[in-house]
Design a protein around this nucleic acid. Structure first.
Lengths: 229, 229
DNA sequence: TTCCGACTGGGACGACCGTCCCAGTCGCAG
DNA sequence: CTGCGACTGGGACGGTCGTCCCAGTCGGAA
């Protein structure tokens, strides 16, 4: 409704497209549907964007920027109290569970992002868009990993870039699992596993202490659910 | 060209659809394109299938069955020599690297499967198809985990079903990473990390022995690539 | 008041989509 | 030889797609 900047219309259309993709997939994001979702005329679409592909490209480029606050409880900024979560394992646990919470709170968000990724990866011409998208994810994860490293002094057995990329790998796997099964409890358990998995990339097992360890002695699962000995 | 069984035509069309989806995405898998890829007339499509959606459904249901041999070096069958890979960690390493190798050897395969998953997940009506697809993945992973458990006596800190699902989570994340970056070396390093990650789900850190550990002392990465001390 | 840029309405285009139809061909089982 | 089932060719349908066009409205800056 605002009459002045073209960029606002572009942003509105992008927001509308993201909503549709999250709801019904990339195929449903037609020019007419996007314009309608944004409450605009079809003509306005091609007034703001040269083509649908141009919107798609800008959609992928900008969508990541708007969700950096959701991925973790603000590891990017340094205002984090080391005393509240002393071990790196606890940091990882908090972060992964927070991510799962954000996943459950807004399921369509990551569904849209993942659908967009697969759309971009499908054709060779659009693959670079997916690379751009994930380089931002890598950066996001990297800053989180750096913060935890600085706060706890963990030592990793591989470069921080690889640790960060592995965080993205874990997040994607968890996201997919959530989208498929829609099982909140299960997904949170995967977050637990992911936290352990991440700390397994630290040098010494002594650097972390799994507080969810079963009873001492010789516990653990070897066969079916019932057998815990 | 074979003239007798309808099921052969159906199989051929499914194979063609999978090829197209792997090459150009789900959107490109039109009835005409599928028929052409299979070398059949368009009329033959609707002779074999009631509709495109019927093919899609059968595609998802059957595609997993044909790739069970690719996911790991035959953990399903019991003919595996325990002496060659004694530790569970080594088993995991071999399996994940074998998976990455199969990924690199046939990139379109898993790209198609993942694209199919996202397509199914997008709309509520087709989501059950994705659940079916992944229940088969879970089963596949479960038999592998069971085999390794039996061979090495690892004890897990969670039920085997969850361990198996986490294997699927790791595999999906790795697959996505490969599809996006197309970096074979990087992906293999993620496989290394995944092997460590999986064994981090075992009860005692003593159950595994990372043979890729850096020098003893106080090694490991804390900041940028260069600093290894 | 003028002007410009944002935006609308509607129509139109060529292309492709999924689906249906039907007369006709061909190979093999009976 | 007959029949049946697999398959073809082509045409056709109603619909939706992305894109373009254009005369016209309207708000605010000049």
């Amino acid at each position: 409704m605002a009459h002045h900047p073209v960029s606002e219309t572009r942003a509105a259309l992008i927001r509308a497209a993201l909503a549709i993709i999250g709801r019904d997939g990339v195929e449903a994001a037609t020019t007419r549907a996007i314009a309608a979702e944004a409450g605009l005329a079809l003509a306005s679409f091609h007034y703001a964007f040269r083509s649908r592909d141009e919107l798609m490209a800008e959609l992928i480029r900008t969508a990541v920027d708007e969700e950096d606050n959701a991925i973790s409880p603000g590891y990017a900024d340094e205002s984090f109290d080391p005393a509240t979560a002393p071990t790196a394992y606890q940091h990882a646990q908090i972060a992964f569970h927070a991510y799962v919470d954000s996943l459950i709170a807004d399921p369509d968000r990551e569904k849209a992002m993942l659908a967009l990724t697969m759309w971009a990866v499908a054709k060779a011409e659009t693959r670079p868009l997916a690379a751009i998208q994930y380089s931002k994810y890598d950066t996001l994860a990297r800053s989180a990993v750096e913060a935890v490293t600085a706060l706890t002094g963990v030592r990793w057995r591989m470069p921080l870039d690889e640790v960060s990329r592995f965080v993205v790998v874990l997040s994607d796997g968890i996201t997919l699992s959530w989208l498929i099964h829609n099982d909140a409890e299960q997904t949170h358990r995967m977050a637990d596993a992911a936290a352990r998995a991440l700390l397994a990339q630290a040098v010494s097992p002594g650097d972390y202490d799994y507080d969810t360890l079963p009873e001492p002695g010789l516990p653990g699962y070897r066969a079916d659910e019932g057998e815990e000995r």
